[in-house]
Design a protein around this nucleic acid. Structure first.
Length: 731
RNA sequence: GCUGCUGUAGCUCAGCUGGUAGAGCGCGUCCUUGGUAAGGACGAGGUCAAGGGUUCGAGUCCCUUCAGCGGCUCCA
C-alpha cells in the first residue's frame, strides 16, 4: 500500500499500483471524467501512471493534486498532446515526415517536422480535419518505457532519424526513455499527456515557419507548425480575438495611417523618420522626463554621435559587439583593408598569395607598412599592422553613450561631496542589428535612449538604485502603465563572456537583489542574461491587451569605472573608485513610442496627442471665428488646428474621430455670437456648448494632470512575448 | 545573417492558363453653406521594387539584387 496526501491535507492509503485516475474514481465518477493530469509532489504527470512510479524515490506520503480543465497547469498538458495529434495528422497526410521537437508555448504549441514537401496555410484545413477525426476517435495516450538501445531500434524502425539522433546525443546520459502511443502513432516523448485525445475541445493551426534542427542554422531545415488548443471554444475564441486585436493595433500600420513615423527605403533599413505627429509624441515625452530628471538632481549633457574607436576598445564594447556595430570610419583609405587583414591573420585564413596582394594594395593606397615583414610570425605581423592602424584616425558611430559620459565625469576632478554625479542625455546610438531582426520601431539600427549614467560612491549604490527604480515606476505611471514585473539578469558563473572579478559580480548581484526584495516589486531572476559588464534589471511591462514588453532598464556596473580608472577624492583625502549605474526608464524612444502606439491603439491621451484640439466650423460663414478659437487654444499651449474644408460638419467630425483627435470644437453662428464652443469629446461624444475660457480650463486640467482615459484592460489570457517557460513539456 | 512568403496609384487591394493597367479611400477643382461619424460632379496620379533573361509580345514565366512580413539565431 502507498500513502497519498490530498490537497486538503488528508492522507489515504491506496494499492501500490494506484494511479491518479484511480484516486479520482474513488472520489467520484464526474471527477474522474474531468481529470486531465495530476501533480505528484509538485510535478505534473500522467493521470494514468502509477503514483508511486511518478514520485520516484520521494518519501511517502506522496502529495497528489488532480488537475482538471480548471487548473492552468493542465492547459500545458493539453496543448502538448494536441501537438502530438497534429503530428499524427501530418504523418497520415504526408509520407516521409521526420519528427523533431514539439513543445508547448505560453499561448499554444508547435511541432518541428522534417518534410521535403513545403506545408502552406492552404494545407491547414486538411490537417485540421484529420486532427478532428483523431480527437473524435478519442484514443488513449499510452506511455511505455524502453531501454536506450531498444528505444533507438524502435525509432530506426519508425524511420525517425531525428529522434534517433536525439537519443544518441541529447539523451545520451539516460538509461531508459519514454514513449507515448496513440493509435498507430508512437513518439519519443517525456510527457505528460492527457488521458485521451477526446479531451481537446478546441484547437487551431495558426502558422507555419521555418526552423532548424536544434536551433542551429548549420543543421537540417525543418518546418515549424504553430497551433493552439483550449478546453473550450469560448476561451479559444477569446484568444483568437486577442490576436486580431493585436493586429488592429500594430504600430507599423497605425504609424503609417496616423503619419507618426516612416522607415523609408531611400534612407535605410532600420532607420526611423519621425514625422511631425510622431515627433510631437516623442518630444512631449522627452520634455516631461527632462523636467523630472532635473527635479531629481540629474544634469543634462550632450555628446557627439561618433568617437574614436579606442574609447570603445577600452570600454570593451567594440571588441565584444563588433559584429553588430556599423564598420568603423577610417581616416586613411587603407584602414578598412588593414582591418580586414588583421582579422584574416588572426583567423589564420590568409594564403601567401593573398598576403602579397594585400601588401601591394596597401602600398597602392599609400599606407606605409614598412614595419611589416612577410617572413615574420603572425603575432609580429599583427603587431605591425596594429601599430600602423593606431596611428590613423578611426571613429565609431557610437553604439553606447556610457563611454562619452565617462569622459564627461573625467573632465574634472571629483570629490565625494559631488557624488552622485548624474549625467543625462537623450543619446542617439547606432547598432548594426541583423537585417532579419529589424521590426518597425521596436528593433531599429538608429535609436535614442533616454539614457543617464550615475557615478556614485559604493555606499550610495543601494539608495541610488532604489531611487532609480522609483523614477522608472513614476515615468511608467505617467502613461498609465502600472502592470509590470522586474527581471533580474545575473551572470552565468560557468560562462567566460563576463568581464571583471567574480567578487565584484557577487556584490553587485546581491545589492540589486536586496533592493528589489525591499521594494516589494515582483521580480524573477534569470541566470546568464546579464550584460558583459554587470547585472541588470529590466522592467517587463504589460500593455492594455496583456502583452509583455521589455522596456526600462537599470544596470549596475563595477567594471567600466575600473577600465577607465575613474576616481573621486574621499573624505580621507585619498582616491576612491566610484560605481556606475546605467539606466533608461523608457529604453529607447523608438521602441517605447512603438509600444505606446500599440498600447493606446493610436488613441493617445490628451497630453501626448499630436493634435489635441480641432476646430470644426459648421460652414465658411464661421471660419473667421473658428480661427480666433484656434488662436486662443494655441495661446493656451494646445496643439490645435482648424478644419477649413468645405465638407459638412458630420464629415469633419468623422474625420477627426478617425484621426483620433481628443477634442473637437464645433463652432457655428450660435457659438460665434456668444463666444462659445460646442465641445465634442473623442470618447464621450457631444459635451454641449461652453465658453472658450471654460473649455480651455477644462482641457488644461486634463492636459497638465496627464490624465489617461479609455485604456481598456483585456480580459483575455496574457500573450507573453517572453517564452522562457516554453520548454516545459518538450519532447 | 539563415529561411519561407510577399512587393501593382499616397493608402488598402483586384488584375484568369503571357496579348498595351483597374477599384475604393485619399488628393485637386468646381457646385453645395450645412449643427455632432461619409453631400455631389469632374479630374490628376503608375518605368507594375530594381536589373537581367525567355518570348513576336512579360505586371503575369525564369534568374539576380533590394526591401517588407513571418520564423530561427542575436540583442550593450
Amino acid at each position: 500500500m502507498i500513502q497519498v496526501q490530498l490537497p486538503d491535507g488528508t492522507v489515504k492509503e491506496y494499492p501500490d499500483q494506484a494511479t491518479a485516475m484511480d484516486v479520482a474514481a474513488g472520489i467520484g465518477a464526474r471527477l474522474a471524467a474531468a481529470v486531465i493530469a495530476a501533480q505528484v509532489n509538485g510535478k505534473v504527470v500522467d493521470a494514468a501512471r502509477p503514483i508511486a512510479e511518478s514520485a520516484g524515490d520521494a518519501p511517502q506520503p506522496y502529495s497528489l493534486k488532480l488537475l482538471t480543465d480548471k487548473n492552468p497547469e493542465a492547459l500545458g498538458v493539453l496543448r502538448h498532446s494536441c501537438a502530438h495529434i497534429m503530428a499524427r495528422a501530418v504523418m497520415k497526410l504526408f509520407p516521409g515526415v521526420s519528427l523533431a521537437f514539439g513543445p508547448t508555448l505560453s499561448t499554444g504549441y508547435y511541432y518541428d517536422i522534417g518534410l521535403d514537401r513545403p506545408i502552406s496555410e492552404d494545407d491547414f484545413p486538411r490537417i485540421e480535419a484529420e486532427m478532428q477525426k483523431i480527437i473524435g476517435d478519442a484514443e488513449k495516450f499510452e506511455r511505455f518505457v524502453l531501454p536506450r538501445d531498444e528505444a533507438r531500434k524502435l525509432c530506426m524502425d519508425l524511420k525517425q532519424d531525428l529522434k534517433v539522433e536525439h537519443i544518441d546525443t541529447g539523451l545520451g546520459d539516460q538509461s531508459t526513455v519514454s514513449f507515448y502511443r496513440q493509435g498507430e502513432f508512437v513518439d519519443l516523448c517525456r510527457g505528460p499527456h492527457i488521458p485521451d485525445a477526446g479531451r481537446v475541445k478546441a484547437f487551431k493551426l495558426l502558422s507555419v515557419a521555418g526552423s532548424y534542427w536544434k536551433g542551429d542554422a548549420n543543421n537540417r531545415r525543418l518546418q515549424r507548425l504553430y497551433g493552439t488548443a483550449f478546453f473550450s471554444s469560448k476561451e479559444q475564441q477569446a484568444y483568437l480575438d486577442q490576436i486580431e486585436e493585436a493586429k488592429r493595433r500594430a504600430h507599423r500600420v497605425l504609424g503609417k495611417k496616423l503619419n507618426l513615423f516612416s522607415i523609408a527605403n531611400d534612407v535605410g533599413q532600420g532607420l526611423c523618420l519621425w514625422l511631425p505627429k510622431g515627433a510631437i509624441v516623442r518630444s512631449t515625452l522627452e520634455e516631461f522626463i527632462k523636467r523630472e530628471l532635473i527635479n531629481r538632481g540629474y544634469q543634462p549633457v550632450y555628446s557627439p554621435h561618433i568617437a574614436r574607436v579606442e574609447l570603445y576598445e577600452i570600454s570593451g564594447h567594440f571588441p565584444y559587439y563588433r559584429d553588430s556595430q556599423f564598420a568603423p570610419l577610417f581616416g586613411h583609405d587603407a584602414g578598412q583593408l588593414v582591418d580586414f587583414w588583421i582579422r584574416r591573420l588572426k583567423e589564420h585564413k590568409l594564403s601567401s598569395e593573398e598576403e602579397s596582394k594585400l601588401v601591394g594594395t596597401a602600398k597602392l593606397m599609400g599606407a606605409d607598412l614598412s614595419g611589416y615583414r612577410a617572413s615574420d610570425n603572425t603575432e609580429a605581423k599583427v603587431a605591425a599592422l596594429r601599430e600602423w592602424e593606431q596611428k590613423q584616425e578611426r571613429y565609431l558611430l557610437k553604439p553606447m553613450n556610457c563611454p562619452h559620459h565617462i569622459q564627461i565625469y573625467k573632465s574634472q576632478p571629483r570629490s565625494y561631496r559631488d557624488l552622485p554625479v548624474r549625467l543625462a542625455e537623450f543619446g542617439t546610438v547606432y547598432r548594426h542589428e541583423q537585417s532579419g531582426e529589424l521590426n518597425g520601431m521596436l528593433r531599429v539600427r538608429g535609436l535614442t535612449q533616454d539614457d543617464a549614467h550615475l557615478f556614485v560612491a559604493p555606499e550610495q549604490v543601494e539608495e541610488e538604485f532604489r531611487q532609480t527604480l522609483d523614477l522608472v515606476k513614476f515615468v511608467l505611471a505617467s502613461v498609465g502603465l502600472d502592470d509590470y514585473r522586474i527581471q533580474l539578469s545575473l551572470r552565468d558563473p560557468a560562462s567566460d563572456k563576463y568581464a571583471g572579478e567574480p567578487e565584484m559580480w557577487s556584490k553587485a548581484e546581491a545589492t540589486l537583489r536586496k533592493v528589489l526584495q525591499d521594494s516589494k516589486l515582483p521580480f524573477t531572476e534569470r541566470q546568464g542574461e546579464a550584460a558583459f559588464y554587470g547585472p541588470k534589471t529590466d522592467f517587463m511591462v504589460r500593455d492594455a491587451i496583456g502583452r509583455e514588453w521589455q522596456l526600462g532598464t537599470v544596470q549596475l556596473d563595477f567594471l567600466l569605472p575600473e577600465r577607465f580608472q575613474l576616481e573621486y577624492i574621499g573624505n580621507d583625502n585619498k582616491p576612491h573608485r566610484p560605481v556606475m549605474i546605467h539606466r533608461a526608464p523608457f529604453g529607447s524612444m523608438e521602441r517605447f513610442c512603438g509600444m505606446l502606439i500599440e498600447h493606446f491603439a493610436g488613441a493617445f491621451p490628451l497630453w501626448l496627442a499630436p493634435e489635441q484640439v480641432r476646430v470644426l466650423p459648421v460652414s465658411e460663414k464661421t471660419e473667421e471665428y473658428a480661427r480666433q478659437v484656434e488662436k486662443k487654444f494655441r495661446e493656451a499651449g494646445f496643439r490645435a488646428s482648424t478644419d477649413l474644408k468645405s465638407s459638412k460638419v458630420q464629415a469633419k467630425i468623422r474625420e477627426a474621430q478617425l484621426d483620433l483627435v481628443p477634442y473637437m470644437l464645433v463652432v457655428g453662428p450660435k457659438e460665434a455670437e456668444t463666444g462659445q464652443v460646442a465641445v465634442r469629446d473623442r470618447i464621450d461624444g457631444d459635451l454641449g456648448a461652453m465658453s472658450v475660457e471654460a473649455a480651455i480650463a477644462r482641457l488644461k486640467k486634463e492636459n497638465e494632470d496627464r490624465v489617461v482615459r479609455q485604456v481598456v484592460k483585456s480580459e483575455a489570457p496574457a500573450a507573453a512575448t517572453n517564452e522562457s517557460g516554453a520548454e516545459l513539456y518538450a519532447d
